[in-house]
Computed example of a mutant assay.
Amino acid sequence: MKPELMKMALILGLLSCVGPFAIDMYLPAMPVMAEEYGVPTAMSQYTLVSFFIAFGICQLFYGPAADMFGRKPPLYFGLVLFLIASVGCALAPTIEWLIALRFVQGIGAASVMSIPRAIIRDRYTGTEATRLMTTVMLVISISPMLAPLVGSLLMAPFGWPAVFYGVALATVASLFLIRFALPETLSVSARTPLELSAMFDAFRVLLRDAYFMGMTLIGGVGMASFFAFLSVSSFLYTDYYGLTSTQFSLAFALNALGFFTASQFAANLCERFGGVAVVKWAVVGFALSAAVNLLLNLLGMDDFAILVGLLLLGNAFLGLVLPTTMVLSLDEHGPIAGTAASLGGTLQMMLGAAAIGIVSAVFDGTPLTLVAAIAICGVLAAVLFMLTLRRPAEPVPT
């Protein structure tokens, strides 16, 4: 990879880690928080739901703002808000306060979810964009591998509030990174006017583009499967399988290994076979691995090694699906890349929040709920792909 691409990938990857770190780092603390606050398990899971709702909805505003004011000002605003909310989470006196502050935290974190995608589209398209996106995904993939372990290490001597102080320190580092290492990629002449009508016109174009919506939703149900895992994994692994918080962190990291490894082959595979073909076969692989996991569980083969192994395989296929669908969905929308990235991110986060809410509500303490939810996501991804590719994508006027 060219040095310029590598530098940009590291910067954008580290910025994009802020949101996932705020999710993954405190997962080991969720059972402890529920116990200390004296609330049911489902109540602590609402801290995830509130974060994801804000995280998803607010991307709708950051994208157009990035098209109007440039890429860096909205990043500053979001990260400062995220920093304040992180400190507030550490000091939350009740679970209700924590849920509310997690919502505010999600508002801030939304800035570093959609804007980095637009920055990539500002500079690159096609194979180069896919290569950069997968390298960003590589950096992001380190988060679920390391964040729960870091959270466990902080929580052991200092208690669960230390997790949020750790996130706050990472946010300060991100602000310095934006100030001194990230260039502004949207020139003043390329910025859209500050008009609500222009923003709604852009949304209208995107919502009518079946190809954009299809690729976005394929990636969205893939994300939803992982968010379903996020919502119950700490309780399933520690309560049902008897893992310690450190063992849970290691098992959680193992699940991310498949995504981490496979995503690095996405650009080369797209260059050789085309992005659509890569998505096609990766979706098939994801759906089949999820179906096998559900079938084995229904047949009574409730084995931790089988569960983790098939989750790892499914995440490997998602490592091809997610970066490729992100690039394909934005290819025809360069002039409104910020708005397109924000709408795509919002739709995907809303699917993730819905998955968390549904799975948390029906979770019975066994793996069946989880593997069934992931299997449903696999089937939906396959159906969406068939509907999206019924006819070739046509350029959509922006």
Rank of each mutant, 00 (worst) to 15 (best):
G13V: 07
G13M: 07
L14G: 01
S16Y: 02
V18K: 01
V18M: 15
G19H: 04
P20W: 09
A22P: 02
A22K: 02
I23L: 13
I23M: 10
I23K: 04
I23S: 06
L27R: 00
A29D: 03
M30D: 02
P31A: 11
V32L: 14
E35M: 14
E36I: 10
G38T: 10
P40F: 11
A42F: 13
A42H: 12
Y46D: 00
T47L: 08
T47I: 09
L48Y: 10
V49P: 06
V49Q: 01
F51P: 03
F51C: 07
I53G: 06
A54V: 06
A54H: 07
F55S: 06
F55L: 14
F55H: 05
G56P: 02
I57E: 05
C58P: 00
L60V: 05
G63F: 08
A65P: 05
A66M: 03
A66E: 00
D67V: 06
D67A: 10
D67Y: 05
F69L: 14
L75M: 15
F77C: 13
G78V: 03
V80R: 02
F82D: 08
F82E: 08
I84F: 15
A85T: 07
A90Y: 08
P93L: 12
E96N: 13
I99F: 09
F103N: 00
V104I: 15
V104W: 05
Q105E: 11
Q105V: 03
Q105A: 12
Q105H: 14
G106Y: 03
G106D: 01
I107A: 06
A109N: 04
M113A: 13
I115Q: 00
P116T: 11
A118E: 04
I119A: 09
R123G: 12
Y124H: 13
